[in-house]
Write a protein that binds this DNA or RNA. Structure first.
Lengths: 271, 271
DNA sequence: CTTAATTTGTACGTATGTATT
DNA sequence: CAATACATACGTACAAATTAA
C-alpha cells in the first residue's frame, strides 16, 4: 500500500502469539480469573517453542492482561485492559479511525487549554509566546514549523497543571504525529494557510493569557477542528451504519436482574 | 515485612530488569535512537541468563519503548511512551493523583455524554434506561449498585459513536474502579445520598434522550464532580510547587456557567 | 504429614537468518 | 565476498512453588 515503506517489518512469532492471546482475552474467549493452558500446551498447540510462549506471556503480563503464579499457572486478570491504553488497533490508520482519534484529541486539548487559562504561570505563558514566535519565524522562512507547533501544544498541556492530562496529550500527539506532520506540510504549500493557522494559535494563546477558560477551550477546539478539515477528515461517527452491539461486560456470578430485553446478544459479530 | 500482606508477590527477575531498563530509558540514561548493549552483555552485567533479558526486552518492546532489529540490536524508540498510555506511576494512588485522573475523566466523560446526545440510537437509549432502572432497584434494595453504575457509564460511552472515546473511558473507569467503588459504598451509607446520585444520573440520561449536547455535558460534568467531592477529592493542581497566580475559579461543586459549546459538528467549518 | 505430579522461573546450549563491517 | 555480531527460535535441564493424592 505504501511504496515508500521499505522497512516491511519482519513478523515475529512472539508478536503474533501475543496478539492472538490478547484478542482471545479481550473478546471474552478467555474470561477473567480463568487459567490459560500451560505454557507447554500452548507451545504445542501453536507449534512453537516454550520460549516464544513465555515472551508473549511476558508482554501480556506487563500490560496487565494476565498474572503468572509460579507453580500454578497463568491467569487472566480480573480487570482486563487495566494498566495501559493503546490505540494500535488492526484497522488503525484509516480515515475514520484517524478522525475518531482526532475527536478525542479535540476534547482533551480543549479542556487543557481551559485549565491552562486558569492555572498558567508567567513562565509558562512566556514559553507559549516563545514557541509562537518561532512558528511565525518558521512560516516566514518557508518552513513548516512542525516542532514549534508541537512545542506550543505541549506547553499548553503542561500549563494545565494536570500531569495526566499533559501526558495523555503528548501520547495522542505522538500517535497522530505523522498525520499532523502531513497536515502542516499541506498547509505550508497553500498561500495564506500558514497565516490562518498562526491566527488560530494566537487566538488560543490570547485567551489563555487573558485567563478566559471558555474562550481558550473554544479557540483550541476550533483550531484542532480546522486542522482536521485541512487533513480532509470529518468529525463523524466511527460506526456509521451500525447499531452498536457491544456486549455489556458484567462480572460472572451476577444474579441481578439485568436488562435482558434490551441487551444485545453477546459475542463478537464478525471478525 | 508486612504481616498483613499475605500475598507477598514474589519478585521476578524479569520484572526487576524490565523496570530498571524502563527507568533508564525514561530518565534519559538511554537516549532515543540509541542502541542497548547486546543481550549477552546485559545478561552478564545483570548476572542473569539471556532468557530473562529477552523477556524483559519483550515487555519493553510491547510497550513501544524499544524496537528490536534482527542482526543489529535493540534500539530505544524515537518517541518513548509511543504505543501505550499508562498511569501506574510510582506516586499513583495519592489523593492528588486521584484527583488529577478524575479531572481527566470529567473531561472525556462529559464530551462522551455530549456526543451521545447527538448520536445515540434507540437501542442505546433503551440500554441506558434499563441500567438506570437496575440502579434504582439496587438502591431501593439497599445495594450499592456499582455494576449498574459502571454499565450506565459504559452505555453512554458506547453511544458516543467514537470507539476510542469509549475505550479510553473504560480504561479510566478500570483504573478508578476501586475509588468509584468506595465512593458508591460511602454514598449508600448516608440516607438520601443514593437518591441524589440517582437524580444526577437521570439528569444525564434525560439530556441525552432529549438530544441536548450542552445539557448532557454539563450534567455529566456535575455528576462526576459530585462523585469526586463525595470521595473527598478536590479538583486542584497536581503541581503545587509551581507558581500559582490565578486561583482556580472552577473548584469542586462549581458548575460551569459559560457556554461550553456543543460537541464538534461535521458542519461547514473553516476550510 | 509426606510424596508426587504439575507448572512456572531460570539457566544454558545450539542452530539459523540478518545486518554490519 | 568474507567475517563478525546479533536477534530469533528451539530444545533441554533443573529449581521453586503449587496442588493433589
Amino acid at each position: 500500500m505504501n511504496p515508500f515503506n521499505v522497512i516491511a517489518k519482519p513478523v515475529r512469532l512472539t508478536d503474533q502469539i501475543a496478539r492472538v492471546l490478547a484478542e482471545r482475552i479481550l473478546q471474552g474467549a478467555l474470561p477473567p480469573e480463568s487459567r490459560l493452558p500451560a505454557e507447554k500446551e500452548l507451545a504445542e498447540s501453536f507449534g512453537v517453542s516454550r520460549s516464544v510462549i513465555r515472551e508473549a506471556v511476558s508482554m501480556l503480563k506487563y500490560d496487565g492482561l494476565v498474572e503468572t503464579r509460579q507453580g500454578s499457572g497463568v491467569y487472566v486478570s480480573a480487570t482486563p485492559t487495566a494498566r495501559s491504553f493503546r490505540l494500535d488497533r488492526p484497522e488503525a490508520g484509516s480515515a475514520a479511525d484517524l478522525a475518531a482519534i482526532f475527536e478525542l484529541r479535540i476534547v482533551v486539548e480543549a479542556a487543557a487549554a481551559g485549565l491552562a487559562a486558569e492555572r498558567r504561570g508567567k513562565a509558562q505563558l512566556d514559553a507559549m509566546a516563545a514557541y509562537l514566535e518561532v512558528m511565525a519565524a518558521d512560516v516566514s522562512g518557508g518552513r513548516a514549523g512542525i516542532e514549534a507547533d508541537a512545542d506550543f501544544h505541549t506547553a499548553i498541556a503542561a500549563a494545565s497543571g494536570n500531569a495526566y492530562v499533559e501526558r495523555f496529550i503528548e501520547f495522542l500527539g505522538g500517535a497522530l504525529r505523522e498525520a499532523i506532520r502531513t497536515a502542516r506540510s499541506n498547509s505550508a504549500q497553500y498561500p495564506g494557510f500558514p497565516d490562518v493557522v498562526q491566527a488560530e494559535h494566537r487566538r488560543v494563546f490570547e485567551a489563555i493569557a487573558a485567563g478566559d477558560p471558555a474562550a481558550a477551550e473554544d479557540a483550541m477546539r476550533q483550531h484542532v477542528l480546522a486542522a482536521m478539515t485541512r487533513l480532509g477528515l470529518k468529525s463523524k461517527k466511527t460506526k456509521p451504519e451500525e447499531e452498536n452491539d457491544c456486549p455489556p461486560r458484567r462480572s460472572a456470578g451476577d444474579s441481578r436482574p439485568g436488562p435482558v430485553a434490551t441487551a444485545p446478544r453477546p459475542g463478537p459479530a464478525a471478525a
